[in-house]
């Protein structure tokens, strides 16, 4: 029986890796993948808590998160494709037309 704390620490570490990846990398594909990692860390928390508390709510929330992630990926990748068509790069620093 692994304590709930262990799962929470693991998921915080995964979330942290995703967060650092998001702020440090400039390749927008990798930034995007880091977001997915963060969502997964959140899911891990939900499922671990669902096991340690009575009820299936945690699993339900994780399912909803997965669905939202799928929707997000569809739009995000479409935006990346459009960006690449316009700029021939996926570097997030290159897309700054709106910056003063």
């Amino acid at each position: 029986m692994v304590e709930l704390n262990h799962y929470l620490i693991l998921s915080a570490l995964l979330f942290g890796l995703g967060l650092i990846g998001f702020v440090v990398r400039r390749n927008s594909l990798i930034m995007f993948m880091s977001i997915e990692l963060m969502l997964n860390a959140a899911n891990l928390t939900f499922v671990a808590c669902a096991r340690h508390h009575v009820g299936a709510e945690g699993s339900v929330l994780a399912l909803l998160v997965i669905a939202v992630a799928a929707a997000e990926v569809a739009v995000g990748l479409a935006i990346l494709l459009a960006l690449f068509r316009l700029k021939k790069t996926v570097n997030a620093d290159e897309a700054r037309e709106l910056r003063a």
């Binding site: 570490l13 995964l14 890796l17 995703g18 990846g21 440090v24 990798i30 880091s34 990692l37």
Partner: peptide
């Protein structure tokens, strides 16, 4: 964790 680090 290793997968995450390598992604970074």
């Amino acid at each position: 964790l290793l997968g995450g680090v390598n992604l970074l």
